[in-house]
């Protein structure tokens, strides 16, 4: 079946079996291999992309369910010549070792800061009604859907804190 997706600002028409996950559509059908397949069951976060402004696991959704949706992958956040602030912060703070989880971490962190800006509370927030400070505990809780088996977590938290502090994403 045909599905029209607006990916990184560009309209793409996907022809694929309805079983195709959004992740497989991006990687295998559309050549966008930045998003990674880790567990393929929504447990690791390596496949995280931003759909209509919200981070989701692209492995746990069907591409055909996203007809007309706007999708941002790590390729759409910045380029090697012009990194996004979050991408630059990961480079500056060495927020990775093998790098496999990194595209998912960066997409997730980028959208997470938007959630914070909208005042969404988290399990780590003492007060549900917003205005929380983005402490390391808040960053860890809000990023718990992105695993890093190299355990680069301290540097990932440093990178996100840095990108958040600059007030830009």
């Amino acid at each position: 079946m045909d599905t029209t997706l607006k990916i990184n600002g560009e309209e793409r028409v996907l022809q694929a079996d309805p079983r195709t996950s959004l992740l497989d559509a991006l990687r295998h059908h559309l050549g966008l291999t930045g998003s990674k397949k880790g567990c393929d069951h929504g447990q690791c976060g390596a496949c995280t992309v931003i759909v209509n402004g919200r981070r989701i696991n692209s492995c746990l959704t069907l591409a055909c369910m996203h007809d007309g949706d706007e999708i941002t992958t790590v390729e759409g956040l910045g380029t090697p010549e012009a990194l996004s602030p979050m991408q630059q912060a990961f480079v500056t703070h060495d927020g990775y070792q093998c790098g496999y989880c990194t595209p998912g971490q960066i997409c997730s962190a980028t959208a997470m800061l938007e959630e914070v800006a909208q005042g969404w509370p988290s399990h780590a927030s003492a007060d549900l009604s917003g205005g929380m400070e983005l402490t390391d505990a808040e960053i860890s809780e809000r990023m718990s859907g992105n695993l890093c088996r190299c355990a680069a977590y301290p540097n990932i938290v440093d990178a996100i804190r840095d990108a958040a502090g600059k007030g830009e994403r």
């Binding site: 976060g45 989701i56 696991n57 997730s108 549900l128 009604s129 859907g145």
Partner: peptide
């Protein structure tokens, strides 16, 4: 929900991950 049913908000935030809660 936050003002009148805070335990529901707390329960939702204790479940899954940010990505999964968005879906």
């Amino acid at each position: 929900v936050i003002a009148d049913y805070p335990l529901l908000s707390r329960a939702l935030l204790a479940g899954a991950s940010g990505q999964l809660r968005n879906k």
